[in-house]
Amino acid sequence: MFITDSEVQSLEEQARKIRVSIIHMLAEAKSGHTGGPLGMADIFTALYFKLLKHDPKNPSLDIRDRVVLSNGHICPVLYATMAHAGYLPIEELLTLRKFGSRLQGHPHREFLPMLETSSGPLGSGLSQAVGMAIADRIDHGKVSPRFIYTFLGDGELNEGQNWEAAMLAAKEKLGNLIAIIDRNNIQIDGYTEDIMPLSPLFDKWKSFGWHVIEIDGHDMRAIVAAVREAQTIFEKPSVIITHTIPGRGVPYMEHRFEWHGTPPGISDISGAPAKADQVKEALRALGE
């Protein structure tokens, strides 16, 4: 067993607070992405509050694990998690997307140097993570103290560059590389299987030579177990396909691709409360 019941509870409560922050920051910004960030809050919490080797007070710690956010549009969850973990003041989250803010609409290292990469344009994060993993292995051989994590969207996997990077990672036997796919079944124009079918996703990665783990992305125990398993795989890169519900925690947003890139409070979307009530209702659903 990797985790106690009380630890699970405290991580779940932390994830809830992060979701609340996500709603606050998007409501204030009046633009930005909601579905993906809410769906990924559990995994980010597990990573930053339990699994990652890092020091929020010393972001440039040399032996830190690296996190590459390839699906940069879900940065509200990254910023909120980093703030709750102690990297940034929580009040700063309300500057998201504003002029002069460190929290750019898509992550930019020039504004926030503690980010490992800038992102937003999809499809290039896995390659950058592969580059980091290869460099790390050159420096530390097979016994590197670091892991390189990268987050990918499922729609993002439409980009061919992912598969170029996947081949290279397998060829280079990058046991220090762990990719985490947000398998939430949505992208902008609709559901992934209508836009560009990805199934069978498990088999695709397996046939590319990766160690593949498939989990419920809202189950803290499963998340922790999956990352620990990936860490033990020695001469293969690992990918964790995390099945998530986009908009998780706010019932009117759940599973709806329309909430991919819309914040609460600015548009009338069928199935949702009136614009004016969306923020209040989201916070209520999250237990505020």
Binding site: G155, N158, E159, G160, D189
Partner: peptide
């Protein structure tokens, strides 16, 4: 279109001529 049909306003065409519209997915190359 590459997964941005409404943003690019191609949805007007797609609606009228669904058989002449091809969704490419997020794959601009």
């Amino acid at each position: 279109c590459a997964d941005l049909t409404e943003s690019t306003q191609m949805h007007l065409f797609k609606k009228e001529f669904p058989d002449r519209f091809i969704e490419i997915g997020v794959a601009e190359q």
